[in-house]
């Protein structure tokens, strides 16, 4: 493992996060067993007080996770100089089998954390905290995820041997490669762009329906999740090409480089935020029949869907702008 400060920082952060979430999971077990809002016992009082601590801890853990996700990608980008054949983050993530799983787990943890925080927010607005049990049960599911993330990231870092010949994005996203990435690249730009805009349209329509009619919250979440995958595929298969103005450069990470005006930072954060918000809506909708929550969920849902649509709009707007300003002609004869 290269003993670089960013790797040490990431390891420290993920171990701390996993540790804190394990503590929180221990508390979640106690909640599941002993929580009883009607009881005035000392134990219940203690549990109620501890929920503040655990909610704060968890909020911090997820905040730190967001930052470490950024640092992880940025760091992979910077490590690329130390590997033969790696020209950007893709090459580094390919350096061993654990690179991509570590990134995926970090992303999964981000979405899990964001939806949990939304759930927590909604629950705190009802006087009788009706979601305490589901909330902490969910935490029990998230804690192993954080643990796995810490372990796999450790595997990834400790398996990094500078000098190793890895394949760079040219090889991974090239026509001869196989696997998911190659499938994404193999998509026709016309197909992927059509899918991108269709999914965008569907998200908009269902989002507006939910905002003004209160229909289709879960459908919105589902469409957003689908839209997220389609958006990532479209970035790899066509939007990136427009940015680099090169018909065979598919890398999703080079977008984050200064050489390409850092446009990646305009694309990814809105997309991730919007998807997280939409998933949160889908999750809280499950409890919209709980009497003390019905009003809260209706208002929160409208607010969140507005925000999610705004961020989705930002993402689709930026993507369209990138395509329009490009000199590359992929569709038609130009």
């Amino acid at each position: 493992m290269p003993l670089s400060p960013a790797l040490l920082a990431l390891t420290l952060a993920s171990l701390t996060q996993a540790g804190l979430l394990l503590v929180a999971a221990g508390f979640a077990l106690r909640i599941l067993r002993h929580w009883d809002l009607n009881s005035g016992s000392e134990r219940q009082l203690d549990l109620e007080r501890r929920t503040y601590l655990v909610a704060t801890l968890v909020a911090w853990v997820f905040g730190a996770n967001l930052l470490s996700l950024l640092l992880f990608v940025y760091n992979a980008e910077q490590l690329s100089t130390q590997f033969v054949g790696a020209m950007c983050a893709t090459g580094v993530l390919n350096a061993n089998a654990w690179g991509w799983p570590a990134l995926y787990l970090k992303m999964a943890l981000f979405f899990a954390g964001a939806t949990w925080l939304l759930l927590n927010r909604v629950d705190n607005q009802a006087p009788d905290y009706p979601l305490v049990r589901p909330k902490y049960a969910l935490l029990l599911l998230i804690a192993p995820l954080a643990l796995a993330e810490a372990l796999i990231q450790w595997q990834f870092f400790s398996g990094l041997k500078p000098d190793l010949i890895t394949s760079c994005c040219g090889a991974l996203f090239g026509p001869d490669a196989q696997g998911v990435a190659a499938e994404l690249v193999g998509l026709e730009p016309a197909t992927s762009l059509a899918a991108l805009y269709l999914s965008g349209l569907a998200i908009l329509v269902v989002g507006l329906l939910y905002r003004y009619r209160g229909w289709g919250g879960r459908l919105f979440a589902l469409l957003a999740a689908l839209g997220f995958v389609i958006a990532l595929a479209a970035i790899v298969s066509s939007v990136a090409l427009y940015v680099y103005e090169h018909p065979h450069h598919h890398c999703p990470f080079c977008l984050l480089k200064t050489g390409h005006d850092l446009v990646g930072y305009l694309l990814y954060p809105p997309l991730f935020t919007a998807t997280a918000l939409a998933l949160g809506i889908g999750l809280i909708r499950i409890w919209h029949r709980v009497p003390s929550l019905a009003g809260v969920i209706a208002t929160e849902g409208r607010r969140l869907v507005g925000l999610a649509l705004m961020f989705f709009g930002l993402f689709y707007g930026v993507a369209t702008w990138l395509i329009l300003r490009s000199n590359l002609v992929l569709l038609g004869s130009g």
């Binding site: 400060p5 920082a9 420290l12 952060a13 701390t16 911090w60 730190a64 930052l67 950024l70 640092l71």
Partner: peptide, 18 residues
Amino acid sequence: DGLQVATLFFFTVFPYTV
């Protein structure tokens, strides 16, 4: 450098907060 500031954050502010 952004990477450095983020790294530094994880070494100082993060442990302090925890």
